[in-house]
Design a protein around this nucleic acid. Structure first.
Length: 742
DNA sequence: TTAGCTGGAGTTTTT
DNA sequence: CTCCAGCTAA
């Protein structure tokens, strides 16, 4: 052991990971095992021991938040100049390289970045220009197709197409590429693909970066896609003499982004291709009590093909998990609110409480209950600052200053605020642009008549803006844009427009901050580029980092979010609601190959968010898509050892809601196509005189667990319809079938 | 050009 | 049920 103070307090595995010699390594970092600490300490250790200069390090993350945190913690440990440090997101780093080598990458110097919304509108515009039937080729689908092709590293000519439909799609992909190139814009996937191609084709540039980056660190490696992994291999010079040391840190059990291209298999491939001879496992958890970890371990054990890992803690086992069975979703929410009130009363801070759910639709009922109770709450997942329409409008004007041929920006604001340029004029303009293969801005010269006049006025405005902004500092530029474009005036006259005006003004602040803060400094620190243009750097920043999620950060509030957005966070108390078959695991996932395993990993993530107390709840019935659905409780309950759970409701389902009621026949509900969840249009009527009621969970000797979804008849004729999940939905005569409350 | 209607869809999300 | 996109009528 050295006496290096950086290393004090590390456990054995952490120490081992931090002080590994310069070789490639795979770190399996369990939830709450001090992953970020290891990553940052590793960086600090490498630098402080003189093994590598800050110049020789590349650290990649997925989110700006993670990159910022890493940088902040590193500079706190080891005061240094952040200039020249390559710590950032995949997209941010690729952008940086492309800015430096725009010529070699075949891009205009001031290329703009399309965010997803921009990309979608660019595709819609393309489809319209080509007169494509958008029934057959919906823009969203085409966008998904293009992005996934790019994420596999495939250009149009490399995509296999065996039928006319597929060939047409590829053709559209090609047309989209041509359009982007013409307009000087790149989408997110293009940043990566372009950068990969640059490195692959340009030997001197590749050699330069391979020589430079001696240590590459990758965070959340399980979330990398095919292209990102290839990019890493290229940068690391895999298989070359001077191969860099790559430290991949990740957790296969927390891989929950396959739906957006993440390839867990990269972990195994990495282990093999980089000849990793010892995988380091960080299994000691510093976050949760033992019972919570035991539950998480028990659930994830049902997955196959894991790299293997078992979380443990030195903290005690703590209390058991608290399980609640609710009558319906509304009652579930009411119960959550009652518990929260008690928790707050006992001194738990509101923002130490999180309400997690599988899908966003579930937040409504919770919000309603919290609102009625007057408990401050905060929902994650809304619009972010740079995604708001007024902000995007202002940015579009700025994009036109940087590049008047940016047709996406052009179409966005050509008639906003309205200036009499309707669909007709725009269509003429688009036709002219198409005919003379020029941008919309450039097509003015080919227009005649009324359209020429109105469009001419707008183009004059764009020129005027560019002229007025020449030599101005960024914040002053924003100021000019807001005034001259008429945006501020427009929102001032709009009722309820004050917030939008405030957001517009906030762009000025954002620009000022950007100039003074690291955002710009990082780009400015680029050693091999000419001084970058602040405007275009700011626009990239706006696309690459959409800003904070909209929520009032004011008073401490109860946190509401999906399990996905909770990844990486932790809370004293976690409520995991809606644990029902069909919802979690989600019905769509059950059909996908290995979909259930991904749901299970999601459950694992959910459980491991809790530090001290974890509530699990489900409802017998729930309003979904305007229909009441009766679902079985989630199979995940069966995967958690019973001794870890304390049921807050009497032995599953035996509570006497409903009881007896009308004995008249209830019309039969339509059979469900999904065997494990079941929908019916009616509320929860009490059923015949059998003591059973709709929504109740029951057990059958042959079919196992089920839930009553319908009933009819009374006395000896009483029959109930039961959803037995995998065993199907069946009508059973109560006089004959042995059905017991479960 | 905009308001108002109608129909369709409805996991998860970062850059 | 509830949101959104796209269409029709003023």
């Amino acid at each position: 052991m050295t006496s290096n103070p950086l290393l004090s307090g590390l456990n054995e595995q952490q120490f081992q990971a931090v002080t590994l010699p310069a070789q490639s390594a795979l770190i399996l970092a369990g939830a709450g095992s001090g992953k970020t600490r290891v990553l940052t300490t590793r960086l600090a250790w490498l630098i402080s021991t003189g093994q590598v200069s800050p110049h020789g390090i590349l650290a990649v993350t997925f989110t700006n938040k993670a990159a910022k945190e890493m940088l902040a913690r590193l500079t706190a440990m080891l005061p240094m100049n952040a200039r020249g440090l390559w710590i950032g997101t995949f997209h941010g780093l690729c952008n940086r390289m492309l800015r430096a080598h725009w010529k070699e990458a075949g891009l205009p110097q001031l290329f703009q970045i399309l965010d997803s919304a921009d990309q979608l509108s660019a595709i819609k515009r393309l489809l319209k220009a080509l007169n494509i039937d958008d029934e057959k080729f919906p823009a969203r689908e085409l966008m998904y197709f293009i992005n996934s092709a790019k994420e596999q590293g495939l250009r149009p000519h490399e995509v296999e197409a065996f039928d006319d439909f597929a060939r047409k799609r590829v053709e559209l992909y090609q047309a989209y590429e041509a359009q982007c190139q013409r307009e000087g814009v790149v989408d997110f996937a293009e940043l990566l693909l372009r950068c990969h191609e640059l490195l692959q084709r340009n030997e001197p540039i590749r050699a330069h970066y391979q020589r430079r980056f001696r240590h590459i660190l990758v965070d959340e490696f399980q979330d990398t896609n095919v292209l990102q992994y290839r990019w890493l291999k290229l940068l690391a010079g895999l298989g070359t003499d001077g191969q860099a040391a790559v430290m991949a840190v990740g957790d296969d059990d927390q891989s929950i982004y396959r739906f957006r291209g993440a390839e867990v298999g990269n972990m195994r491939d990495f282990e093999r291709e980089f000849h990793v001879d010892n995988v380091i496992r960080l299994e000691q958890n510093y976050r949760s009590h033992g019972n919570i970890l035991d539950a998480a371990n028990a659930v994830i054990r049902h997955n196959s093909g894991r790299l293997g890992k078992n979380l443990w803690t030195e903290a005690g086992s703590g209390e058991p998990l608290r399980v609640y069975e609710a009558f319906n979703d509304i009652e579930e929410a009411r119960w959550v609110v009652e518990e929260i009130k008690a928790l707050i009363h006992d001194g738990t801070a509101r923002d130490d409480i999180a309400l997690l759910y599988r899908s966003n639709a579930q937040s409504r009922v919770l919000e309603h209950a919290l609102f009625s109770a007057g408990i401050p709450y905060r929902v994650y997942g809304g619009l972010r600052f740079f995604e708001r329409q007024e902000v995007k409008h202002a940015l579009a004007y700025m994009r036109l200053i940087a590049n008047p041929h940016d047709d996406t920006a052009f179409t966005r604001v050509v008639n906003f605020p309205t200036r009499g340029i309707g669909a007709r004029s725009l269509e003429q303009l688009q036709d002219a642009a198409q005919a003379h293969s020029t941008s919309l801005y450039g097509a003015l010269n080919f227009l005649t008549g009324k359209a020429a006049q109105s469009v001419g006025a707008f183009i004059k405005l764009v020129d005027q803006l560019r002229f007025a902004c020449e030599g101005l500092k960024l914040p002053e530029m924003v100021e000019q844009v807001l005034e001259l474009s008429g945006l501020r005036a427009h929102y001032l006259t709009e009722k309820e427009g004050q917030e939008r005006v405030a957001n517009l003004d906030e762009i000025i602040n954002a620009a000022a901050n950007f100039i003074s803060e690291e955002g710009y400094a990082q780009v400015a620190a680029e050693d091999e580029t000419a001084p970058p243009d602040p405007l275009s750097a700011f626009l990239s920043h706006a696309s690459l980092e959409a800003g904070e999620h909209q929520a009032d950060a004011g008073q401490a509030a109860v946190q509401l979010m999906t399990v996905h957005s909770a990844k990486g966070l932790e809370f004293d108390v976690v409520f995991m609601g809606g644990l029902e078959e069909g919802l979690f695991p989600h019905e769509n996932s059950v059909l996908e190959r290995d979909g259930l395993e991904e749901e299970r990993r999601l459950m694992y993530v959910a459980i491991t968010r809790a530090r001290h107390r974890l509530y699990l709840s489900f409802a017998q019935s729930r309003m979904l898509h305007g229909q009441t659905r009766y679902n079985l409780r989630s199979r995940f309950f069966d995967e958690i050892p019973a001794e870890l759970m304390k049921w807050l409701t009497p032995p599953a389902s035996a509570r006497g809601y409903g009881g007896f009621g009308s004995s008249s026949a209830v019309p039969a509900a339509p059979a469900s196509s999904n065997p494990r969840s079941f929908g019916s249009g009616r509320k929860n009527p009490a059923v015949n005189d059998s003591g059973f009621r709709i929504g109740q969970q029951v057990a059958h000797a042959k079919f196992g667990a089920g839930v009553i979804v319908n009933a009819e008849g009374s006395g000896s004729d009483a029959r109930v319809q039961v959803n037995f999940g995998a065993h199907g939905v069946k009508w059973l005569a109560l006089a004959v079938a042995k059905l017991t409350p479960a």
